[in-house]
């Protein structure tokens, strides 16, 4: 593994992080709404009270000082105080993180498996009816708004059939006798949101999978294998598939940003207590520090994921040149 390649990628990521931080800072300085009125949620503030709030939130300084201060705070993982909850932003976000990770993890698994299967079938039968159907299905899934799918699933499985809970992560406030009961409870609540969010990202995976498989099919060693008389099934599964999975690694990383979109919609429909709903609620309540913090953390996660994907990709695919 070439250290220069890694270092260069790292450097690029760092610059990107800086750009994101800067955009983030300025974006939130120009938001509407008097921050004092937001914090105090009332109009009649005395000058002294305003001053004390100013000091508390650091509004009393010049723009560039605020920016430098902001940078320094970030380095000490200080994301400020939530307007709404009057608690450190990191704590507010941390409270919601696990729920989203749980949802996102299973949605990803669902999407990757389903996407890979559909993509593989499609590629293996390229040009035939089954290909068109599989591809059509992948594109169809892509075209369905996630929130709409969520609503339809709720209507059918929860309201009509009563098969799954309507929303939330557990039956609220229930004391679970055993850990197992707790896990089962979460599991039951997880099904519909996972399907909703998984479907939202699955279509893209299927299409990428198909494309990268078709790419691999043109490689020499596949032609060789074919000439040697291997069965098509074997060629697809043993020769083509492992190599075709590579581009998926990158796509999954790039998709992190897209997942947030799915998370906001899914969590809104299902009242799932995660980051997505927090972003939505923070926007509705104009809780800028929380929005800003969430926005930054999400962006940095995406950058990190991209970096890891780049490095992993370089590691896994010997064809990449480390120049």
């Amino acid at each position: 593994m070439n250290i220069n390649y890694v270092l260069r990628k790292l450097f690029h990521s760092l610059i990107t992080v800086l750009i994101v931080i800067t955009i983030n800072f300025f974006l939130f300085r120009i938001m509407p709404g008097d921050p004092f009125a937001m914090i105090a949620k009332a109009g009649n503030l005395s000058a002294e009270y305003k001053e004390s709030l100013s000091a508390l939130y650091g509004f009393d300084e010049a723009f560039h000082i605020q920016y430098l201060k902001y940078l320094r705070q970030l380095f000490s993982f200080d994301f400020g105080l939530s307007f709404k909850y009057r608690k450190p932003v990191l704590e507010v976000i941390g409270n919601r993180l696990v729920a989203t990770l749980l949802l996102a993890f299973f949605a990803q698994i669902f999407a990757i498996v389903a996407g890979a299967v559909i993509g593989t079938i499609s590629a293996a039968f390229r040009g035939r009816k089954i290909d068109v159907m599989a591809l059509g299905f992948a594109l169809l899934v892509y075209a369905i708004p996630a929130f709409w799918l969520g609503i339809v699933l709720v209507l059918f499985f929860s309201v009509k059939l009563g098969a799954f809970p309507l929303n939330g992560m557990v039956v609220a406030g229930m004391t679970h006798p055993t850990t197992w009961a707790y896990v089962m409870d979460v599991g039951r609540h997880l099904v519909l949101p996972v399907i909703t969010m998984g479907m939202a990202i699955m279509g893209g995976y299927a299409i990428i999978m198909r494309g990268s498989l078709l790419d691999v099919f043109t490689e020499d060693y596949i032609t060789t294998a074919r000439a040697k008389g291997f069965k098509r099934r074997d060629i697809v599964i043993h020769h083509a598939l492992p190599n075709a999975l590579l581009p998926m690694v990158t796509v999954i990383a790039i998709n992190m940003g897209f997942m947030i979109s799915g998370a906001i919609q899914t969590e809104t429909v299902f009242s799932w207590p995660g980051i997505g709903r927090l972003v939505y609620e923070a926007l509705m309540a104009r809780d800028y520090p929380v929005l800003q913090g969430a926005f930054l953390i999400i962006s940095i996660t995406v950058i990190l994921a991209n970096l890891i994907a780049d490095i992993l990709y370089g590691y896994l695919d010997p064809r990449i040149k480390y120049d």
């Binding site: 610059i15 750009i19 955009i23 940003g257 947030i260 979109s261 906001i264 929005l291 995406v302 950058i303």
Partner: peptide
């Protein structure tokens, strides 16, 4: 670099914030 920086910004939240 700028394009990359912009690319990783989470789209929907960004759009939501700008719309607001």
């Amino acid at each position: 670099r700028f394009t990359d920086g912009f690319m990783v910004l989470p789209k929907l939240p960004l759009i939501m914030i700008l719309a607001a």
